[in-house]
Amino acid sequence: MAVWNLGSINEDRFYRVPRLPGPGETLTATRFSVGLGGKGANQSVAVAKAGSTARHIGRIGPEGAWARDSLKALGVDVGFVIQGEVPTGHANVHVDNAGENMIVIYPGANRAFELPQIETALAKARPGDFLLLQNETNLTREAAQKAKEKGLFVVYSAAPFEAGPARAMLPFVDILALNEIEAGQLSADVGVAVDELPVARLLVTRGAAGAVLHDHAAGKVHTVAAFPVDPLDTTGAGDCFVGYVVAGLDQGLSPVDALRLGAAAAALQVTRPGTSEAIPDRAEVTAFLDGIDN
């Protein structure tokens, strides 16, 4: 099986600051670095490092070949990443001494998808494959609809969150992934309780409190606790978690084991600086879990 991902690719620009700035405030960064990011790229890297086949459907600008090369070096199939004239997306990431972040995103090429590119890529997908989607690209709903027509399992991370687009995706989603705040906002918009949102499976991440999967299709609720660590940088932790969970499901793990795998991967990721490059490989995650169990 394979995990396809219509996903963003960003240049992440990291600024280490003593604290997050307030309105109108200027702070001096103590450190600066550049790396590969974007919710889509992060999730693809997590899938690949977890040991599943990750096929990324993406767009980069004329200066973005390095990002495609980085994805490939991290184990992702980049055969469906197209280079065009719109600049590569980027994110300015401010990280404070507690590991909390503040992010401003320029979508760039991530909003320049054309339907033929998506159709060409998904023509290679097989029933039972996974499709990952996030809100950092255009044509997300169209891709989800075509994926469902082909029998793919659609996982949608509704972030950055907008109630309208998220609501429009509900008929085509097999797993809807949200954090607690986003789940509350969508619940209010739809007019039902969080655990009654009309989707087959709802995955709610709760930061240090772990995560819960409401499996409405099976009539079960699965929870996982977060592993306690000292965070250095929480940027991309949710992407790492979702990518690892999907890889676990792709490999036939039970929902509980897939959630635990994702929680362990995210715990390791937040102890390192960066986003895609900070995602641990499967051997590291397995060793971490072995240490917990023993």
Rank of each mutant, 00 (worst) to 15 (best):
Met1Gln: 13
Met1Asn: 09
Ala2His: 05
Val3Ser: 03
Trp4Val: 03
Ser8Ala: 10
Ser8Glu: 02
Glu11Gly: 09
Arg13Ser: 12
Leu20Glu: 12
Thr26Val: 12
Thr26Lys: 07
Leu27Phe: 12
Ala29Trp: 11
Arg31Thr: 12
Phe32His: 15
Ser33Met: 08
Asn42Val: 03
Asn42Ala: 00
Ser44Phe: 05
Ser44Ile: 10
Ser44Asp: 10
Lys49Gln: 13
Arg59His: 02
Ile60Arg: 01
Gly61Tyr: 02
Pro62Gln: 12
Glu63Gln: 07
Gly64His: 10
Lys72Leu: 02
Leu74Met: 14
Gly79Leu: 00
Gly84Glu: 13
Glu85Cys: 00
Pro87Ile: 04
His90Tyr: 15
Ala91Leu: 08
Ala91Pro: 14
Ala91Tyr: 11
Asn92Tyr: 08
Asn92Met: 13
Val93His: 13
Val95Ile: 15
Ala98Phe: 12
Gly99Ile: 06
Gly99Phe: 13
Glu100Ile: 09
Met102Ser: 15
Ile105Tyr: 00
Ile105Trp: 01
Tyr106Ile: 14
Gly108Gln: 07
Asn110Ala: 11
Leu115Asp: 02
Leu122Lys: 11
Ala123Asn: 12
Arg126Ile: 00
Pro127Val: 08
Gly128Tyr: 09
Leu132Val: 03
Leu133His: 02
Gln134His: 07
Asn135Arg: 05
Leu139Thr: 04
Leu139Gln: 06
Leu139Pro: 01
Arg141Glu: 15
Ala144Val: 02
Gln145Cys: 03
Lys146Met: 15
Ala147Thr: 03
Lys148Asn: 01
Val154Ser: 03
Val154Trp: 03
Phe161Ile: 11
Phe161Tyr: 15
Pro165Asp: 10
Ala166Leu: 02
Ala168His: 11
Ala168Gly: 03
Asp174Ile: 05
Asp174Ser: 08
Asn179Cys: 09
Glu180Leu: 05
Ile181Leu: 04
Ala183Val: 06
Gln185His: 09
Leu186Cys: 08
Ala193Lys: 10
Ala193Trp: 00
Ala193His: 09
Ala193Ser: 06
Arg201Glu: 06
Arg201Thr: 03
Ala208Pro: 00
Ala209Ser: 08
Leu213Phe: 06
His214Gln: 04
Asp215Val: 00
Asp215Tyr: 05
His216Val: 05
Ala218Pro: 06
Ala218Cys: 02
Gly219Pro: 14
Lys220Gln: 13
Ala225Asn: 15
Phe227His: 11
Asp230Thr: 13
Pro231Cys: 09
Asp233Trp: 08
Thr235Ala: 09
Thr235Asn: 07
Ala237Asp: 04
Ala237Val: 01
Gly238Asn: 04
Gly238Glu: 00
Phe241Val: 00
Phe241Thr: 04
Gly243Cys: 10
Tyr244Val: 07
Gln251Phe: 10
Gln251His: 13
Gln251Ile: 05
Gly252Ile: 11
Ser254Gly: 14
Asp257Ala: 14
Ala258Leu: 11
Leu261Met: 12
Ala263Glu: 06
Ala264Lys: 03
Ala264Met: 06
Leu268Gln: 11
Val285Ile: 09
Val285Arg: 00
Asp290Glu: 15
Gly291His: 11
Asp293Ile: 04
